[in-house]
Measured scan of single mutants.
Amino acid sequence: EMEYEEITLERGNSGLGFSIAGGTDNPHIGDDPSIFITKIIPGGAAAQDGRLRVNDSILFVNEVDVREVTHSAAVEALKEAGSIVRLYVMRRKP
């Protein structure tokens, strides 16, 4: 069973403070093209906020749908998102 969360982060000097993997051209798990959080960087915006978790998958960055995009398109969406970034994420319920 999945749960969904909308997380708004303010981009810090060091960016959003997380790493991603995945994409249609580089699936992270099997042939699932989802964009997954692979690392939360200590002291970064995501770590300070505390809600984003490793293995969360990002569905939307602001209004941009990143469910079926290449890795570089997801990176671009995050880069272009401005200083306030709304992430709509999905994760397995614990």
Rank of each mutant, 00 (worst) to 15 (best):
E1H: 13
M2I: 04
M2L: 02
M2H: 01
E3F: 15
E3C: 09
E3P: 02
E3T: 06
Y4E: 10
Y4R: 09
E5F: 15
E5S: 14
E6R: 04
E6M: 03
I7E: 00
T8N: 11
T8S: 03
L9H: 01
L9D: 00
L9M: 10
L9P: 00
L9C: 03
E10F: 10
R11Y: 11
R11M: 04
R11D: 10
R11P: 08
R11N: 08
G12N: 06
N13M: 03
N13H: 08
N13T: 07
S14L: 08
G15Q: 14
G15Y: 09
L16N: 08
L16H: 02
L16M: 04
G17W: 01
G17M: 13
F18Q: 00
I20T: 06
I20L: 14
I20Q: 05
A21V: 11
A21C: 07
A21Y: 06
A21I: 12
G22S: 05
G23W: 02
G23Q: 04
G23V: 05
G23D: 08
T24G: 09
D25H: 04
D25T: 13
D25R: 09
N26E: 10
N26P: 05
P27E: 06
P27H: 08
H28E: 06
H28Q: 04
H28D: 08
H28S: 08
I29C: 11
I29M: 08
I29F: 14
I29S: 10
G30W: 07
G30I: 11
G30Q: 13
G30A: 09
G30F: 04
D31K: 05
D31P: 12
D32H: 11
D32I: 09
D32W: 03
P33M: 09
P33S: 05
P33C: 12
S34K: 14
S34T: 08
S34V: 10
I35H: 15
I35V: 09
I35Q: 10
F36S: 11
I37L: 13
I37F: 01
T38C: 15
K39H: 11
K39I: 05
K39L: 10
I40K: 01
I40D: 01
I40G: 00
I41N: 13
I41K: 03
I41S: 14
P42F: 13
P42V: 12
P42R: 08
G43Q: 06
G43H: 08
G43C: 13
G43F: 12
G43V: 06
G43M: 06
G44Y: 12
G44V: 06
A45W: 11
A45N: 12
A46Y: 01
A46W: 02
A46N: 02
A47K: 12
A47M: 07
A47H: 15
A47Q: 11
A47G: 09
Q48Y: 05
Q48L: 05
Q48E: 06
D49V: 02
D49C: 11
D49W: 03
D49Q: 02
G50R: 09
R51E: 12
R51P: 01
R51H: 06
L52D: 00
L52V: 08
R53M: 04
R53Y: 02
R53A: 06
R53W: 03
V54S: 13
V54K: 08
V54H: 01
N55G: 06
N55S: 05
D56M: 12
D56K: 00
D56F: 01
D56N: 12
D56W: 05
D56S: 09
S57Y: 12
I58M: 07
I58D: 00
I58P: 02
I58C: 05
I58N: 00
L59D: 14
L59E: 13
F60Q: 14
F60K: 15
F60R: 15
V61M: 10
V61K: 00
V61Q: 00
N62L: 00
N62S: 14
N62D: 14
N62Q: 08
N62P: 00
E63S: 10
E63Y: 10
V64K: 14
V64F: 07
V64E: 13
V64P: 00
V64D: 06
D65Y: 06
D65E: 08
D65P: 14
D65A: 15
D65V: 14
V66S: 11
V66P: 00
E68R: 06
E68I: 15
V69T: 05
V69I: 07
V69L: 04
T70M: 11
T70W: 03
H71R: 07
H71D: 15
H71Y: 06
H71A: 08
H71E: 04
S72Y: 12
A74F: 13
A74V: 12
A74S: 14
V75Y: 06
V75H: 11
E76M: 12
E76G: 13
E76T: 07
E76I: 15
E76W: 12
E76V: 14
E76S: 05
A77M: 02
A77R: 11
A77Q: 14
L78Q: 03
K79M: 01
K79S: 01
E80I: 07
E80Y: 07
E80Q: 02
E80W: 04
E80C: 13
G82S: 14
G82D: 06
G82Q: 13
G82H: 09
S83D: 13
S83F: 06
S83A: 08
S83G: 11
I84Q: 14
I84L: 13
I84C: 11
I84W: 12
V85G: 01
R86T: 03
L87V: 09
L87K: 00
Y88S: 11
Y88W: 01
Y88M: 14
V89Q: 01
V89N: 05
V89H: 00
V89S: 15
M90N: 15
R91Y: 13
R91M: 13
R91H: 15
R92F: 03
K93I: 01
K93Y: 01
K93A: 03
K93R: 02
K93T: 03
P94Q: 04
P94V: 15
